[in-house]
Simulated scan of single mutants.
Amino acid sequence: MRKLQVSLSLSQTQKIRLDKALEKLQSCTTNPNASVIVADSIPVNYEDAFLKGLGTADHNGEVVATVCGVVERVNKLVYVRALRARYKPEVGDIVVGRVLEIAQKRWRLEINFNQDAVLMLSSMNLPDGIQRRRTALDELNMRNIFEENDVVCAEVRNVHNDGSLQLQARSRKYGKLEKGQLLKVDPYLVKKSKQHFHHLEQYGVDLILGCNGYIWVGEHVEVRDSMVEDQISDVERQKITANKNSTSLEEQELIYTPLEMRQNICRIANAIRVLSNLGFTLIVEVIMDTVNASNTKNIEIHDMLGSEFHVVVAEREADRRISLTKRKK
């Protein structure tokens, strides 16, 4: 938080307001001993047998933390889950990545992991929507599906023992992402849940919270059923392809994202940046509350990254958590 205060160059009044908001947030924490920094003592019951896991060590007869994070206990195992660590993938995670290379029957993606992920051609839903074996012609046309620097949404299919990662994109909700912004935040700020795809109907924007810390904010795209796709004739597909490849001014205007939509995307993206700077968990309710607060206070999009709005968001989040705590009681 000190780095935040320096980067924002807060005034004296803003520093006092921010400190008060942080004190309120700390008072709402159910277990203050859960968060530790390096050399903090971890309370354990020495009478019962326990196992020291990652992020812990012995020092003068006490168990201390060797990393900053949250103390986790699983049966007899005690370890510290580092917060600002690289993404650790699990099967079923929704991730957003960028294509780095096209290889033989596969794409190589960067997903904020210590190794690049692999998306096989056989694990990809083809544009025609027909389930069939991949041929040599499909391999030659791989660049028509994804090319270098494309942003892609996929699901973790398998994590091998050597750390290599394999993805899949067999559903219509996965695939290439266009007309939007790609944001990078700390992976621990994205909580794993049942729903990582969100359609913000009020703004006509799609929000994808990748478990790997990559977040996509883009124009809403309707996911058509495969049965509807199969009804499109080959002639119509050729017309669509020709329209995409044409470069006339009128057709380019149809491809461009409207100004209002771009403003909505930028406003939501800046709200996520503010929450990330403050270290708040990124959930849809908090993101929408931050966006609505910027609209209510008539804050311009570029002013959302200023020091005043950061303080306002911290105060609102403190009030929200206090109200939630009172409801539980």
Results as ranks from 00 to 15, higher is better:
E315R: 11
A318C: 13
L282W: 06
I301C: 13
G279S: 04
I283K: 07
D303M: 13
I283C: 08
N277Q: 06
V313W: 00
N295A: 11
F309S: 05
I283E: 05
T296I: 11
A293G: 02
V311Q: 02
G279R: 00
I322C: 08
S307E: 14
R320H: 05
T290D: 09
F309L: 04
I287P: 03
R321A: 09
I299T: 12
S307T: 07
D289K: 10
S276W: 03
V286R: 15
F280W: 08
E317T: 08
A293C: 08
R316N: 15
F309N: 09
H302V: 15
T296P: 00
K297T: 07
I272S: 09
A314H: 02
S294M: 07
V291W: 00
A271R: 13
S294C: 09
L275D: 04
A271Y: 04
I299K: 07
A318G: 14
V313C: 11
V286L: 14
V291Q: 04
E317V: 06
I283T: 04
L275H: 09
A318P: 12
V291T: 12
H310M: 08
S323L: 13
D289E: 15
E285M: 00
T281S: 12
F309P: 00
V313S: 07
T296K: 14
T325M: 13
E308F: 01
G306C: 07
S307F: 01
H310W: 02
T325S: 14
S276D: 14
N277G: 15
G306K: 04
E285F: 01
D289V: 08
A271F: 02
I287C: 02
L324I: 05
D319G: 03
E317H: 11
E308Y: 02
A318V: 07
V291M: 04
M304R: 11
I322R: 06
V313R: 09
V284Q: 12
L324Y: 00
E315Q: 13
L278N: 09
L275G: 05
R273I: 06
M304C: 06
S276H: 11
M288S: 09
L324G: 04
N295I: 10
H310I: 03
D319A: 15
R320F: 10
T281Y: 15
N298F: 09
S307C: 04
R321C: 12
S294V: 00
V284W: 06
S276V: 01
M304A: 09
L305A: 03
I287K: 07
R316V: 01
V313P: 03
I299W: 02
G306P: 03
T296M: 14
N295Q: 15
E308Q: 07
I283P: 04
S307Q: 09
R273T: 11
I287G: 05
